[in-house]
């Protein structure tokens, strides 16, 4: 294993192998199909029950049914609710006819312009957000203590027995996912239930999800399934369906947790074009590699020299 530019940016086929696991299970991930999300928040609760997370306070946010607000140290799943006009469908009946049928002026009177005439033009989107477990994870790359690491499953996990709360990872995440807990200052985020994976269990959120909006499995399989799902939705006239985070050519080398969205990512509070902040670390390594290796070798020889005494 050599250190290469691919270790920091661009497509990377074997993310676990790159992290030093010579024999390892398939890379796993989440495919969150928001087109079947019912916004029940079972994922949020199942995550907290399993991971024994504290509550996040009791604040009514007034943002539709979202009272979690965002992913945080204590909320590793977050369901966003978006109330918006729906895109026009070919099958939708012409609404002008209704206006005529009403036989009434549709101006000034409160409510006058809002009978049933725009009902089919409205929709309510729901989406369960989570750590993306990036192929190139900024949080991991900037962590100075080794608290963040890549697991054999290709996921990214904060080790709370190592983390010293420096907070570099918080700014290292292009999605704004990782967060420090106020009381102990350490960084916390989704582990994709690392402890469960080792025992062959699926993550708590995916297991609970009533409609299978959150699907867990080998990433390659999920990507294939997701592409088929998009095709099906397109066939049914849901032309706005698109995948987010599944492309290995994107700024983070593709996400381990990717999404099927029904609108632009920004609508869901997701960055449209995330880029790992350490994208150039690979070329920096190339320049600094020799010096670094020499330095390290010296350090080790000193260490061993001492040990032997």
């Amino acid at each position: 294993m050599t250190v290469s530019r691919e270790s920091f940016y661009g497509p990377l086929d074997d993310v676990s192998g790159d992290a030093g696991y010579t024999e390892h299970p398939e890379r796993v991930g989440f495919f969150t199909d928001t087109s079947v999300c019912i916004g029940c928040k079972a994922c949020e609760v199942a995550c907290k029950e399993w991971n024994l997370l504290p509550d996040d306070g009791f604040d009514l946010l007034g943002m539709s049914f979202d009272n979690t607000g965002e992913l945080s140290a204590n909320s590793w799943r977050h369901v966003a609710f978006i109330e918006q006009p729906a895109p026009p469908r070919e099958s939708a009946p012409a609404r002008e006819a209704d206006a005529v049928d009403l036989g009434l002026p549709s101006f000034d009177l409160p409510g006058a312009g809002t009978g049933e005439e725009t009902r089919t033009d409205f929709r309510w989107l729901m989406s369960s957000d989570v750590c993306k477990h990036c192929t190139h994870a900024g949080c991991l790359d900037v962590c100075p203590t080794g608290a963040l690491f890549r697991t054999e499953f290709g996921t990214v996990v904060v080790q709370d027995d190592i983390c010293n709360g420096c907070g570099y990872c918080v700014s290292g995440c292009p999605y704004g996912v990782i967060d420090r807990r106020e009381d102990d200052g350490r960084a916390w985020k989704c582990t994709m239930c690392y402890d469960r994976l080792g025992d062959g269990l699926e993550p708590a959120c995916a297991k609970a999800c009533p409609t299978d909006s959150i699907q867990f499995g080998p990433l390659d399989e999920l990507r294939e399934r997701a592409r088929e799902r998009v095709a099906t939705l397109h066939d049914r006239g849901i032309t706005e369906a698109r995948l987010y985070g599944e492309d290995p050519n994107d700024g983070v080398g593709g996400d381990g947790a990717f999404f099927l969205l029904l609108d632009e990512p920004e609508v869901y509070g997701l960055p449209p074009d995330p880029v790992v902040p350490t994208r150039d670390a690979g070329s920096m390594w190339a320049r600094a590699g020799v010096a670094a290796a020499a330095f390290a070798a010296t350090a080790v020889s000193v260490f061993f020299g001492r040990s032997r005494r």
Binding site: K41, E44, V45, K48, E49, P54, D55, D56, G57, F58, D59, L60, F65, N67, T68, P110, G111, T114
Partner: peptide
């Protein structure tokens, strides 16, 4: 239950924008 209470922490009343204006 904290895990449920935080998800819907307060009583609210849903009204349309038109009724809100009225």
């Amino acid at each position: 239950l904290a895990y449920l209470s935080e998800l819907q922490p307060a009583l609210f009343v849903e009204v349309s924008p038109q009724l809100a204006a009225e």
